[in-house]
Design a protein around this nucleic acid. Structure first.
Lengths: 191, 191
DNA sequence: GCACCAAACGGAGACTGTCCCCGGTTGACC
DNA sequence: GGTCAACCGGGGACAGTCTCCGTTTGGTGC
């Protein structure tokens, strides 16, 4: 158990400003927003940015953990208020909407469900997969979902739906439609 | 009718070497392969590359037109040898495999079915959409496909499937599975 | 053959972005 | 208010994109 000493006041200040600015920049410009530009907008040097966040992915993840947690929490909320199958569909819908509207989020969610990506075992990946697992299990019990679909597969397929919808109009206008086509295929097999 | 004078011999030579090298580079490294590096490998200056191909997309497209045409031709071949629904599924499967194995191809196919992308009206887009249209119409007639699915939507969804499969293992091992799940949802509605 | 010149070449260089390094600064603690 | 580890920030090496322009060369008419 290493003694963790609290961050110095200036460090904490910079850290938080960076997160705030980064979240905005990634949302607007996607995952490839300029890091030096983010540093500048946060009023710090690029050295400071890279010390706090060794690479782009680290910053991206830090900027969106809370949003991911919110999505995970939303799963339980939906599970309480609707039938499992419906809750699942609605949750995936919201996931896709978030992926398209907040541009950096999609990349992050994608790498969270990528097999064998370095550093994939992150807080983000864990909580989103946990939420998916709970929803999938409930939906299976209700017979609203085939038994051979793994939670992580569902997340990957949802990512695919978001990608397809993005190609359509760039604003997610087709998510609902594409998702319902997919869900139709994921229902328990026809008699 | 403008008089088209043939390319000078050195120009044609360079043009073709660039295409060859670019196809290799994009296949290996994806759509973001370094253009200067491609020029160097082809033994020409970067100025020459940019004169022949004003931007990355132009080079990408030129490097893969023939491959896209082959995919489009393959559609007719499959249509002749199998039932429409099965032919469609197999064609989409091959499309996805190509998208994953030849890395730059996916980006190109994606932009070909993007609504409102600049320069979307290209030879690639036209021939791939044409092939999709023929397959979709045949499948519809057979009742193997819902009537409300547009050809271009199918291409977008296939792109989504390729994306999902790529997340799974990076090599397309799940394409068949994910595609069959999708196709299940695209069949004519249950009674 | 040869001279001409439009077409084509190629690489220097301006610009943007990433990331590291290290001399200077500052906040926390005594 | 002195000490020092932690932190800052910007300069700079490196890589990539794309343009500009002086130089070279292939095609053509003689």
């Amino acid at each position: 158990m290493t003694r963790v000493r609290p961050m110095r006041a200036d460090a904490r200040r910079n850290y938080e400003r960076l997160l705030k600015v980064a979240a905005e920049a990634f949302a607007e410009q996607g995952e490839n927003a300029s890091l030096d530009e983010i540093a500048k907008r946060a009023g710090v040097g690029s050295g400071t940015l890279y010390r706090h966040f060794p690479n782009r992915r680290a910053l991206l993840e830090a900027a969106y953990v809370d949003r991911i947690q919110a999505i995970a929490a939303r799963a339980d909320e939906l599970a309480d208020s609707r039938a499992p199958g419906e809750a699942l569909t609605e949750w995936l819908y919201e996931l896709c909407v978030g992926s398209i509207q907040v541009r950096g989020l999609k990349a992050l969610l994608g790498s969270a469900v990528t097999d064998g990506s370095p550093g994939a075992v992150t807080a983000c990946a864990t909580s989103i997969k946990g939420a998916a697992t709970r929803m999938v299990e409930a939906a299976r019990r209700e017979g609203a979902l085939r038994a051979d679909i793994e939670p992580v597969e569902l997340l990957r397929l949802a990512h695919g739906v978001a990608t397809a919808a993005e190609l359509a109009d760039g604003h997610g206008g087709q998510i609902r439609r594409y998702l319902s086509l997919l869900m139709e295929g994921l229902r328990a097999p026809r008699g």
